[in-house]
Each structure stands twice: as structure tokens, then as C-alpha cells.
Design a binder for these strands. Structure first.
Length: 385
DNA sequence: CTGAAAATAT
DNA sequence: TATATTTTCA
């Protein structure tokens, strides 16, 4: 952050080529290393800033990334052969990337207003092949620090803009990182706070919707994203420039969801709001829960509750005719003590006759959520709200 | 607020 | 193509 500013005073941006040339003239290898590191760092900072807009600035990302990789190669070389001259040519793929990057530095924000939607055709791929780094193989299976969920709560973050926080903070390897290739010394492009500006004037904006990246550890409290609820004014059909960051339902989150759901009496009787309250997850919104619930219900309905007891009615929605009643009590009376899916007392004691056996076949899931179907490799958690 | 469906993003 | 999530609608 501040780095980029003050360093800029000391460091006059130059093209990578020039930089390398200059580098080669340095006698002191340690100095070279430090210069290189500094440059790389600058590039990385830059990249992080742009990360948010990678869709709109794919080329910038590409260029930056390329530059970083090459410089890192250099760094490696320097480290390796402490004294060998470092002279390779650095030929940016197309030409000058520094020019571009510079300008970015200055107006990366303002340029945002110009993005035309049409070029998010391709995304920039992260093939992080940084020179010598090897992927840090699993340290242990899931080292997911049980710091479950949670984005900090800032639901009403209107159009505020969250300053860059330490991204890559608490090492949580988010169960969701799509690709967390190496990391060690390079903050690379892991997490990024969405941070969108307030800029973007509604008036002429071409519908720029898109851009979001989902990552972040659960423990992290970063969030950025806007929720802005434009009221009405006259421009009826103008939607917010950015779409809400997708909420990633990590296994942890899902688990809580299910638990809450069950405490409330099952998929059919629990209401989104109640669930959300029970979950006590910080930045979670009703809509998100509602949505998840919708999906959950569908899945539950789809697969044959395994029990098969009934005549296998894919079509028969379980007859929860009588037992609905239970819903009410659970909420107020018993705060959530037991988080386990245990069955709640089913009312039918006295008359018993009822056919309640049917219900409750539903949720069984694997404790680990996300298993309903299988797929879902990408889960992140993240920023949010 | 809810649930369902359409729209999108992945 | 299928699925996950968001947004829109009733």
C-alpha cells in the first residue's frame, strides 16, 4: 500500500528492459536481488489492484503476470548464481508493458469507467509456473483451520469501499481455492478484496456486470462488495454495475446451514430468515440462505432419500401432514444447544396414530455438506458482503 | 418475507 | 452441459 507510493519517489519506473539493463550493471549481487524483489513486489501490488478487474483488463493482467514471472525467474537466477551476471533479455511479449502498467498505476481507478463490457471474452489464466516453486503439497490433509466461516459482517456496506486489507492473511487455505498452487513467497494472486469503487456513474454505464472473484479464507474478515439497493428514481431499468459477490458455501457453512435447518424442523418448515439467525454467521444474508435453501430442497427432493421405505416416491413429497406443528416451539424455547441433527422430539406422543414416520427422511447428507452431488470443486468463501 | 423461476457465473 | 448463486417476480 503505502509502499507503492513512497517507493515511487525513489524508484523511477522504467521499462523492464531498462531495469534489467541497469540491473546488470550493478556489481553487488545482493543489491540486484533487492532491486529485483522490489520491482517484483511493485508488480504484484499492481496486480492485486487489478485483480478485481481482471475481466475488464485481461491484457493488463496478462502482461503483469508475465512480467512478474519473468522477473521471478531472474530472482531465482540471482539467488542461484549469486554472482553470475544477470543479463538476459527480457522481452515482454508484445512490447512495452511498463507503459501500460504505469498508466494503470495512475488511473486504474478512473479507467474503470471506461471499460467496455465487450472484452471480457477471455480470462487471464493463472498458470503459475513461477520458476522454482514447487507446489507445497498438502501439508496434511485438510489443514483447514477450523476457523469456520465467516466473512465479517458488513452487510450494509453500501457503496463503501474497502481499502485493501492484508489479503492472504491468516493462512486459511480456504477449502475453496480453486488453485492454490504455490504460494510461499509470493502472495501471488490469491485473495483479493473486491473493492469496487463508488465510481461508475450510473448514467451512461454500459452494463458492466461481471467481475467477482471468490476467494478468501473463511476466517478472514474481508469483504467488499456492494449491496447497494438502488431505489427507484427514474431509471427503472438500470442495474447495479456489479453483481454481488458469489457466496461460497464451504462445507463448514453448509454444515451450519443444515444443522440450523434441522433444529428448525426440516427443510419444509424452516424459513430462510430463521435459518440465518440460527446460523449466526456473520455476513450471511437472507437471500443467500434462501437461495441455498432452495437448492437444498431441490436436491433433497431429487434424490430418493435413500430410505426407500416408501414406495419410492420420487414423486411423493412425503406427507408431512400432521407434524408441521413442531416448528414453532423449537425456535424460541430451545436455543440451539445440541447442534447435532438429532431428531427433535416429535410431538406425537399421545395419539400417536399419525403417520409421521414419513418425514424426516430428508436431510441426511454427508456431514460434510457439499456432497449432494459431487461436483463442486470450487468453493470459496469469501469476501462478501 | 417467502418460494419459484429466470438469469448468470463457473 | 451441468451446477451454483444471484436476481427478479409474484
Amino acid at each position: 500500500m503505502e509502499l507503492s507510493l513512497d517507493t515511487s519517489l525513489v524508484f523511477i519506473p522504467k521499462t523492464i528492459s531498462d531495469f534489467l539493463v541497469q540491473l546488470s550493471t550493478m556489481e553487488d549481487s545482493s543489491q540486484r536481488s533487492s532491486e529485483l524483489d522490489a520491482y517484483v513486489k511493485r508488480l504484484e501490488d499492481e496486480m492485486r489492484k487489478i485483480e478485481v478487474f481482471k475481466r475488464e483488463l485481461p491484457l493488463c493482467m496478462l502482461l503483469l503476470k508475465d512480467a512478474i514471472e519473468r522477473l521471478k525467474d531472474k530472482v531465482m537466477q540471482c539467488k542461484k548464481m549469486e554472482d553470475r551476471p544477470v543479463i538476459e533479455e527480457f522481452i515482454p511479449l508484445k512490447g512495452n508493458l511498463e507503459g501500460k502498467e504505469n498508466s494503470d498505476k495512475k488511473n486504474w481507478m478512473s479507467s474503470a469507467q471506461l471499460w467496455s463490457t465487450s472484452l471480457n471474452v477471455f480470462e487471464y489464466s493463472n498458470h503459475d509456473s513461477v520458476s522454482g516453486l514447487r507446489l507445497r503439497n498438502v501439508e496434511d490433509d485438510r489443514s483447514v483451520p477450523e476457523n469456520p466461516i465467516e466473512p465479517s459482517n458488513n452487510r450494509a456496506v453500501g457503496r463503501t469501499f474497502v481499502p485493501f486489507k492484508e489479503q492472504y492473511e491468516s493462512g486459511f487455505t480456504g477449502t475453496c481455492l480453486k488453485d492454490d498452487k504455490e504460494v510461499s513467497q509470493v502472495p501471488s494472486l490469491s485473495l483479493m478484496t473486491p473493492l469496487m469503487s463508488e465510481a461508475l456513474d450510473a448514467s451512461t454505464n454500459t452494463n458492466i456486470k461481471s467481475n467477482n472473484n471468490c476467494r478468501g479464507g473463511s476466517g478472514s474478515g474481508l469483504a467488499g462488495q456492494l449491496k447497494l439497493q438502488n431505489k427507484p428514481q427514474q431509471q427503472s431499468q438500470q442495474q447495479q454495475p456489479f453483481r454481488k459477490q458469489r457466496r461460497c458455501w464451504s462445507p463448514e457453512l453448509h454444515r451450519r446451514f443444515v444443522e440450523s435447518l434441522q433444529q428448525l424442523g426440516g427443510t419444509q418448515v424452516a424459513t430462510p430468515k430463521q435459518i440465518r439467525e440460527l446460523m449466526q454467521v456473520d455476513g450471511l444474508t437472507n437471500d443467500e440462505v434462501k437461495s441455498h435453501l432452495q437448492k437444498y430442497r431441490l436436491h433433497v427432493r431429487k434424490l430418493p432419500t435413500s430410505s426407500a421405505a416408501k414406495g419410492n416416491g420420487i414423486w411423493m413429497p412425503l406427507d408431512h401432514s400432521a407434524d408441521h406443528s413442531k416448528a414453532n416451539n423449537s425456535q424460541s424455547g430451545s436455543p440451539q444447544g445440541p447442534l447435532l441433527p438429532g431428531e427433535f422430539a416429535k410431538g406425537r406422543s399421545t395419539t400417536g396414530g399419525e403417520s409421521d414416520n414419513s418425514r424426516e427422511a430428508e436431510e441426511d447428507e454427508k456431514s460434510d455438506g457439499q456432497s449432494w452431488k459431487g461436483g463442486l470443486l470450487h468453493n470459496n468463501q469469501g469476501g462478501d458482503v
